[in-house]
């Protein structure tokens, strides 16, 4: 037993070490940006990990420029609307895929997978041309539409996996209890699919929030430019001023909503919500 305990402890230590390495590897760049955002312009390049002089000036700067606030508004608005639409459409499509047998089901799933795998870069130029002729270029819908397109396959896939886990008999039971198909969906299936819907919402929101490619290509002014794109347009007050500090501060600011979003919804992802439905 002692030997066994020893090897177990060794395995624990080994795993802890690996975990620490991975964590450090992932977190150092993030912490570096946080550190940069608190440094003064003079100490920006002093190669110290912990700032010697702390300042909130960078944060004050980004919130005094209209540019950043407007971009933040665009980002929140576009990501929330795109997430909402993608999740609603995805829920309906995933439900149909999980529950019904209809002609062309495999084709539909295949095509949606195809969209997910399509290199987005190759679509930027055609999209740019199309949106310009349609008058969608540099507008909110101009970004929301492609975001929905590329988020839907992800949403459909995640959600249909969740729907498949809900026992089919619950819906039959609801029907026997006198529910219409719509009532059965709303009062029985939807509440049980909620964890899946929230998970999907997080993934889709992060995808929209983080997108840089479409944001930089399909916008030209602050009227619809999202934060990741706006960051690249940050500049110092003069040619000789380095905007690193303000860019870092902005990067920290836009990471916060994601963290909040995940923390908020994570509490709703209650594992094993369907336990107790059937035998067990």
């Amino acid at each position: 037993m002692a030997v066994l305990g020893g090897t177990e402890r060794a395995a624990k230590v080994r795993w802890s070490l690996i975990n620490i390495v991975v964590l450090v590897y992932a977190l150092v760049p993030v912490l570096w940006i946080v550190s940069l955002s608190f440094k003064t312009k003079e100490t920006l390049t002093d190669k110290n990990f912990i700032p010697r002089e702390w300042t909130l000036q960078n944060y004050a700067d980004i919130f005094t420029t209209n540019q950043f606030l407007r971009a933040l508004l665009n980002s929140v608005g576009i990501a929330v609307i795109a997430t909402l639409i993608a999740v609603v459409l995805g829920t309906m499509a995933a439900y149909a895929i999980a529950r019904l047998d209809f002609p062309g089901k495999r084709l539909l799933v295949g095509v949606s997978l195809l969209i997910a795998m399509f290199p987005q870069v190759s679509l930027v130029t055609p999209l740019f041309e199309m949106e310009r002729s349609l008058g969608l270029f540099d507008t909110w819908p101009g970004l929301i539409l492609p975001y929905i397109t590329f988020a839907l396959p992800l949403a459909i896939y995640t959600l249909s996996a969740f729907f498949r886990e809900i026992p089919w008999e619950l819906e039959k039971a609801a029907k026997m209890d006198g529910a219409t198909p719509a009532q059965a969906f709303r009062r029985v299936i939807a509440p049980l699919a909620a964890p899946g819907v929230f998970t999907t919402a997080i993934l889709v929101f992060i995808f929209c929030w983080n997108d840089f490619l479409f944001a930089i290509s399909l916008t030209s002014t602050t009227s619809s430019r999202t934060v990741p794109a706006a960051l690249s347009f940050f500049q110092g007050s003069s040619q000789f001023e380095d905007p690193t500090g303000t860019v870092s501060a902005a990067a920290v600011v836009i990471t916060v909503p994601i963290i909040l979003f995940v923390l908020f919804f994570q509490r709703r992802i209650v594992a094993g919500l369907t336990s107790g439905a059937v035998k067990g």
Partner: peptide, 9 residues
């Protein structure tokens, strides 16, 4: 139902 099909929520 055989599985009871109770609404777990």
């Amino acid at each position: 139902f055989q599985s009871y099909a109770l609404y777990p929520h």
